[in-house]
Simulated assay, not measured.
Amino acid sequence: MVKPVKTRGLADAIAEYVEDGMTVALEGFGHLIPFAAGHEIIRQGRRDLTLCRMTPDLIADQMIAAGTVRKLVASFFASGSAGSLHEVRRRIERHDPEPLEVEEYSHYGMFCRYQAAASGLPFFPLRSYAGSDLPELNPQIRKVEDPYGGAPVHVVPALAPDVTVVHAQRADRYGNVQMWGIVGAQQEVVYAARRAIVTVEEIVDEEVVRSDPNRTVIPAHAVDAVVHCPGGAHPSYVQGCYDRDNAFYRDWTPISKEPARLHAWLAEWVYGVPDRAAYLAKLGDHWPAAVAVGERLSQPVDYGRRLA
């Protein structure tokens, strides 16, 4: 059987799989955040999306400001510990320029929602809401009786995005995706979704993937499109490739604080460039120099093979 090649251009993948009104998850837990894909969604003018994201940092602020997002399903609202998300705050605190619908969970609550959908379950139990006021604020967090006679337990509903987008270090052309470092909920959110797009720093030969199969966090059967997109996680980081651009994160607070300045940034850095390669070229020499990482190799392992 001939395996299908799943490599696509980012613009083509977004155009095919992301439609107005969809529920879209862009995951990456501080690490491997798919900024390039988020920018392409903005560039293509998508509207009325429900954005799902643990820690809705700068990419959420940018997509909301661009008018792409109608509803945010999220946990832990933060700008990478570097300041405020002022567009999110304007929408929630002052309904300026219009309100944003928000459905809030804890990190583990979001993870459990993805896990439920990935497992084909309607909901998932967890104990971490004991003593929290989130169940009072979010009616989707409910209690059920323990069928085995224990105390009631909180549950969260399954979350199955129409499309999930994640970033990773590498994949082969068939869509076997390898990642290392903080992997967050990458595997669960891909399996939870109806479609999955993965952007990667590098497309490698199948033999590279086969040589270290335990790093294949997302296998080909769960992936619809794999996109070669070096620098696709900037300004977040990719373990072993580049560090986080902390200066960019610090700069975002004053940028997002003023709506006119924020929209000028979008005009210049998203609408004003055709793709991620042009975005990186516009960053100039500052970017690779500021976020370069030194080599730190993992020790090799011997998987062994049968001799006869």
Results as ranks from 00 to 15, higher is better:
P4S: 07
P4F: 03
V5S: 05
K6R: 13
I14R: 01
I14P: 00
Y17T: 12
D20C: 02
V24F: 00
V24I: 00
A25I: 02
E27S: 08
G28L: 09
F29T: 10
H31Y: 12
L32P: 09
P34I: 09
P34V: 07
P34S: 00
F35W: 15
G38A: 04
G38P: 01
E40S: 01
R43D: 03
L51H: 08
R53Y: 01
R53W: 04
M54H: 11
T55C: 11
A60R: 10
A60H: 07
D61Y: 06
A66T: 09
V73P: 00
A74E: 06
S75H: 04
S75C: 08
S75I: 08
F76K: 14
F76D: 15
S79A: 14
A82T: 14
H86M: 10
V88M: 12
R89Q: 12
R90I: 15
E93D: 15
H95P: 04
H95R: 06
E98S: 14
E104D: 13
S106C: 02
Y108K: 04
Y108H: 09
C112T: 03
Q115T: 14
A116M: 05
A117R: 03
L121D: 07
P122K: 08
F123R: 14
F124G: 11
L126C: 02
Y129H: 03
A130N: 12
L134Q: 10
L137G: 11
N138E: 05
Q140P: 01
V144T: 08
D146S: 09
D146H: 04
D146P: 03
P147F: 05
Y148S: 10
V155F: 00
P157H: 02
P161M: 00
V163K: 04
T164N: 11
T164E: 09
R170F: 11
D172E: 03
R173Q: 14
N176D: 10
W180K: 13
I182R: 15
A185R: 07
Q186T: 13
Q187Y: 06
V189K: 12
R194E: 06
A196K: 03
I197W: 12
V198G: 05
T199K: 10
E201V: 07
E202P: 07
D205V: 14
V209N: 12
S211P: 06
I218Y: 05
I218E: 02
P219I: 06
V223D: 00
D224N: 10
A225T: 09
A225K: 09
V227P: 13
H228M: 13
H228I: 15
P230S: 07
P230W: 03
P235I: 00
P235F: 01
S236F: 10
Y237R: 13
Y237M: 11
C241S: 14
D243S: 13
R244G: 00
N246I: 13
A247I: 03
Y249N: 12
D251R: 08
S256E: 09
S256L: 02
P259E: 05
L262F: 04
L266S: 05
L266Y: 07
W269C: 06
V270P: 03
V273N: 08
P274I: 06
D275V: 02
Y279D: 11
Y279C: 02
L280Q: 14
L280C: 14
K282G: 10
L283D: 07
H286Y: 15
A290W: 03
V291T: 08
G294T: 14
G294M: 05
E295T: 11
E295G: 06
R296V: 09
L297H: 11
S298R: 15
D302T: 11
R306I: 08
R306F: 05
R306D: 09
